[in-house]
Structures are given as structure tokens and as C-alpha cells.
Computed example of a mutant assay.
Amino acid sequence: MNATKLSVNLNKVALIRNSREGNYPDVTTFGQICLDAGAHGLTVHPRPDQRHIRPGDVFALSDLVQQHPGIEFNIEGNPNAGALGDYPGFMTLVRQTLPHQCTLVPDSNEQLTSDHGFDLTRSGDALRPIIEELRELGCRVSLFMDPDPAQIDLARAVGADRIELYTGPYAAAHKAHNSEMHKLLDQYRYATEHARDIGLGVNAGHDLNLDNLEQFLHIPGIDEVSIGHALTVDALTMGMATAVHAYLRLCHHQ
């Protein structure tokens, strides 16, 4: 069974911090705890309203990752998110920090969380020059996608290196124990096989947790999962390091 890398999304740690004045809990400290526990990367998803990750966090975590060779920094978000207040803009943050991976997501400023993949028949032409710039900056580019082979073909055509499969529907079906789950797993399996056949790497993320991750990772060829909300919730009861260890076990690393 293939080993899948775990990137810990620190947004929810930042959300707790932002509920009070000051810097407690410190996002960078928790990033270090995750790395010490064996996480392969750190993920942030800055948004213009700065509801969780702030620009200063992006710079601090970039500096942290640079102190750990082999660890990857992943910035995800909407490349068309403009400046709001003292938010410098998504692309500006990427240009200034040069993450190893940039995951482009089609969310709006008003969305609570990401809930669908790109429709590249509509947005592909606009994304192409952004992807070209990101690759020139040395960033691996991943596009947030539904498990639709036709759309995955378009992701390859616009120059992406990877896709990140949006796993929200699978997680919902798994929680409900309904008959759709196995049908969805087949769709994700086929989408993964198709992506890899045409030269794309495959990441996955959204609502993956300790209950549903193992079954999802029976799909071979998943390079990386990015997990934040569920892992942070688990950390409330078991501690951050223990939570990271639990997820790594399911990724077949421990």
C-alpha cells in the first residue's frame, strides 16, 4: 500500500488565536510541534478577511519550513483574491514567500470553506497565465478539483502539476453510511488513475478525518492529504503531536 504524505493545515489554530488579542496560541509554535511529530508539510489558506491565517503567519511559517530541509510549505487560496484592508493579495504573498506548492482554489471571499472544484471550461483561460507565473517562480501548482475526468484533462492542459481532489462529498457519504459512499469511492479511484495516467500528481483534502481517511487511502496513488479542521479538533482531546501521529499511521508511515 502506498505511503501518502501528510500536510497539516494550521488555519484553525489561527482561528483560535484570532478570538483574542495577542498571539496565543502561536501558530508557528504549533507548526513546529507538527513537524517534530513527523508531518511532511504545513498548509495555510489565507483569505482577504483574515478570519484565520494572517499575512504575518505566512511569512513566519515560510521561515520555519526553510529551517527543515525536505519539509514542504503549501499555500492554498483563490489567486483572484484581491487586497482587503492590510491583506496584500494572494499572489503577492506567494511571490514573497515562494512556497514549494501553491494550491489554487475557486472559493469566494464570502464562502465559509471551499466546497467545489474548478470548472475549467469557464476559468481555464484565466488560470493559465497564473499557473505559468507560479511555475516560473518554482512553485508546484495544484488545482482543487472534483473527481471529473474531463475537468482533470483540462487541468493538465492549463499546465497544472497536480490536482487536489475535493473530498467533501465522500466524507459526507461516509458519515451518513449511505449507499453513495462506494459509488463515490469508485469515482475518486478512477479520477486518480486517470490523473496519474496523463502525468498529474494527486492530492486530496476536505473533511478527511480519523474515521474516513483510511478507507479513502485504499485508493492507490494519493501523493498527499492536507488536513486541518479534523486534526485540530482531535488535538483538543489527544494533543497536537498525538493527533499528527494518529493521522500519519493512517497514511502508512507509522
Rank of each mutant, 00 (worst) to 15 (best):
R196H: 10
L154G: 02
A172L: 11
P129T: 08
G159Q: 00
E180T: 09
R162A: 15
F144G: 04
I198C: 07
D197C: 08
K175Y: 07
R122A: 12
E133N: 10
L154Q: 09
K183H: 12
L134T: 03
G124C: 08
P149Y: 12
I152L: 01
A126C: 06
A126Q: 15
L112E: 15
A160F: 06
I130C: 09
Y190V: 05
Q151I: 12
D107L: 08
I198E: 05
G117D: 09
D197T: 14
L137A: 06
E180C: 07
E110R: 15
S142K: 01
E132A: 12
S179I: 11
L137R: 13
D146L: 03
P149N: 14
M181P: 00
I163V: 15
Q151D: 01
V141G: 00
I198A: 09
G138Q: 09
S123K: 12
L137C: 11
Q111D: 15
Y190I: 11
Y190H: 15
D153T: 15
D115Q: 10
V141W: 06
Q151H: 04
G124S: 12
R140W: 10
Q151W: 04
R140T: 14
A126N: 09
A126L: 12
I152G: 01
A176Q: 14
P147R: 05
K183Y: 10
G117K: 00
F144T: 03
H182L: 09
R122E: 04
L127W: 05
A126F: 11
R156F: 13
Q187N: 13
E132I: 09
V141Q: 03
G124Y: 02
D146Q: 11
Y170E: 00
G199W: 12
G199I: 13
E164D: 08
D115G: 08
S108F: 11
A173L: 04
D107A: 03
E110H: 09
S142D: 03
I163M: 06
D161H: 15
L134P: 01
H177W: 08
F144C: 03
